[in-house]
């Protein structure tokens, strides 16, 4: 009776190793009992076997009943936050790509068809990716969260254990986090899809070109870092959104994320030729400033000092962000 063997195999292979043999033996007994009741011991035909198996549940259903637990990627407890974050991520990615397209089209209306195709391609590749990564992150959260929930079961619950309603100062405003995520996403989209326009826009009667801030030769190799950097920022805002209030844990995570971001920024900006080495010359060529003029000297000075000040500003910003988190977490 090969069909019976195959049915039993299909059921038991979805079950834990330790239970397989026992359940297989019991199922075989059941199927033989059912067959015997229907057609007797002799003359069992293949079609009889199939009838009996059809009367039982499908192997998948039966195995699920034996397991007793529903298997899922993201459980009901995380589902609401998951949907919220997923919505934001998808909207932001679409908006970022759309804005990229708009900027490109405004600057260069003739190539609108190319840009449009680019946009569609970006949407088709980016949206599933965003969906996948969001789901993946939450699935990880679900897996690691399971341990905690198990620990909680069985403990007596007292109304006095209820967490206090957080002070308004500790609460993280949803709008702020969402705005942060949108800002990061737009920046990523802008840098990734139209880095050529990140610079001084030169208008002489009409738009004539851009003097880019960044070195176009080396930019490609930095792009991954930059996207990762803003990706970290988005992750941080998502955590804030899910948490809803400042806690020490959140503050510590913020510090770690900010430290990593800071290291990456210092690395990028200090790297060879991150900035456009021809910036001043191109600026002069574009006719914005004249070589030798006072304005040229000032711009030149600013340009030279730029790296230093950007680092200072970023470090202050990131340190403040982390310290702020701690101060708010401490408030009772």
């Amino acid at each position: 009776m090969e069909t019976i063997d195959r049915y039993i195999y299909a059921v038991t292979q979805k079950l834990p190793q330790a239970q397989r043999k026992d359940i297989a033996d019991e199922l075989r007994g059941l199927i033989e009992d059912m067959l015997e009741e229907r057609v007797g011991i002799a003359n069992i035909k293949e079609s009889d076997v199939e009838d009996v198996l059809l009367e039982l549940d499908s192997p998948n259903e039966l195995a699920e009943k034996y397991r007793g637990t529903k298997k899922y990627l993201i459980g009901p407890e995380l589902f609401d936050s998951y949907i919220l974050v997923l919505k934001i991520v998808l909207i932001v990615v679409s908006a970022g790509i759309g804005i990229g397209f708009l900027i490109q089209t405004i600057l260069d209306p003739i190539s609108i068809l190319d840009y449009f195709i680019d946009m569609i391609v970006s949407l088709v590749t980016s949206l599933p990716m965003a969906f996948g990564w969001t789901t993946f992150s939450f699935a990880i959260g679900e897996r690691s969260g399971e341990v905690k929930r198990k620990d909680l079961i069985g403990q007596e619950w007292k109304p006095s254990d209820l967490p206090p309603i957080p002070d308004e100062k500790r609460q993280i405003k949803r709008g702020e986090s969402i705005a942060g995520i949108i800002f990061y996403a737009i920046f990523i989209a802008f840098l990734a899809f139209s880095s050529d326009y990140f610079g001084i826009w030169v208008f002489q009667d009409e738009f004539t070109g851009v003097v880019p801030f960044l070195n176009e030769q080396t930019y490609g190799s930095y792009l991954m870092f930059i996207i990762l950097l803003f990706g970290f920022g988005i992750l941080k805002e998502c955590l804030k959104l899910v948490s809803g209030k400042w806690t020490y844990k959140l503050a510590i995570v913020t510090i770690i994320v900010n430290a990593v971001s800071m290291a990456a920024i210092v690395f990028i900006i200090n790297g060879p030729d991150f900035w456009n080495p021809e910036f001043m010359n191109e600026l002069a060529e574009a006719g914005v400033v004249t070589v030798g003029s006072e304005a040229f000297d000032i711009v030149n000075k600013v340009w030279d000092q730029l790296t230093f000040w950007i680092i200072i500003l970023l470090v202050i910003g990131l340190v403040w962000d982390a310290v702020d988190g701690f101060i708010k977490a401490r408030k009772k």
Binding site: Q19, L27, G29, L30, D33, M34, E61, L62
Partner: peptide
């Protein structure tokens, strides 16, 4: 298992083997 299925259904409590066997375990 199967004697229980028969017994219960004779007494007016029909139950599928696919439900009963996992329940017994």
């Amino acid at each position: 298992g199967y004697s229980l299925v028969t017994m219960l259904s004779e007494k007016g409590i029909p139950v599928e083997p696919g439900t009963l066997y996992p329940l017994l375990r």
